[in-house]
Nucleic acid binder design. Structure first.
Length: 201
DNA sequence: ACGAAGATTGGCT
DNA sequence: GCCAATCTTCGTC
């Protein structure tokens, strides 16, 4: 096991990084010492200025998106629909506001804690399928925005698993109808035949 | 300062 | 399958 280093994230090819994140383990561990983690099974890439679906499209620079312009390797967490916290990994070099949304996990560590956070009695795919659901299960909120993914409370681990290309399904991103033609781009990646991802669109 | 819409989820029909 | 929840963010007045 190794924590993914900063230079994993600072590369320019965000689409490649989004695919390489599949099979890695997203971990949170807060002051209470409880470790919760999941194997990443679904991601979506957002390619900065040129991507209409990206919050930083056309160079939009606001209090919310400011952190996306930092060097890759940090977290970008924002509130969606006033209810859900969505966790993103920042990629590319400083000044290039790329990010990858983590959309689905296979639960690994701290499942009782995750069930408690989600108010569920038994494990089921909906525990960590979907970006809002997995953030709640891992205890993620906006206070993590800007945090470096090299130490607690959040980081990503390489457990030696690489997902082979034929096992990766690319499809259009969801919930971004406002993005015009860019809504068609196949920037959503997930592991084939994995029950912990959301179904194909 | 005001109002519309959102990278979603879960409960109800 | 449809729709409300809920509040921040951002564009416009």
């Amino acid at each position: 096991m190794a924590i993914l280093p900063q230079n994993f994230y600072t590369r320019a090819d965000t689409l490649l990084i989004a695919q390489q994140l599949l099979g890695k383990h997203l971990v949170t561990q807060f002051a209470d010492g409880l470790r919760t983690s999941g194997r990443i099974v679904e991601t979506e890439a957002y390619l900065g200025r040129e991507d209409r679906a990206c919050h930083a499209w056309n160079g939009r620079f606001t209090d919310r998106t400011r952190v996306m312009y930092e060097s890759g390797g940090g977290a970008y967490v924002y509130l969606c629909y006033g209810i859900h916290h969505l966790f993103n990994v920042i990629t590319h070099r400083a000044g290039e506001p790329h990010a990858i949304l983590i959309r689905g996990l296979e639960p690994i560590d701290g499942i009782p804690t995750m069930l408690q956070r989600r108010g569920m009695a038994r494990i089921a795919p909906r525990l960590t399928a979907g970006p809002g659901a997995l953030a709640k299960a891992l205890g993620i909120d906006r206070s993590l925005t800007g945090h470096s993914l090299q130490s607690p409370p959040t980081w990503i681990e390489d457990h030696g698993e690489d997902i082979a290309l034929p096992e990766i399904i690319a499809s259009p991103r969801v919930g971004i109808d406002y993005a015009g033609e860019d809504a068609q781009l196949p920037y959503r990646f997930r592991i084939r035949n994995c029950k912990w991802t959301s179904p194909a669109k």
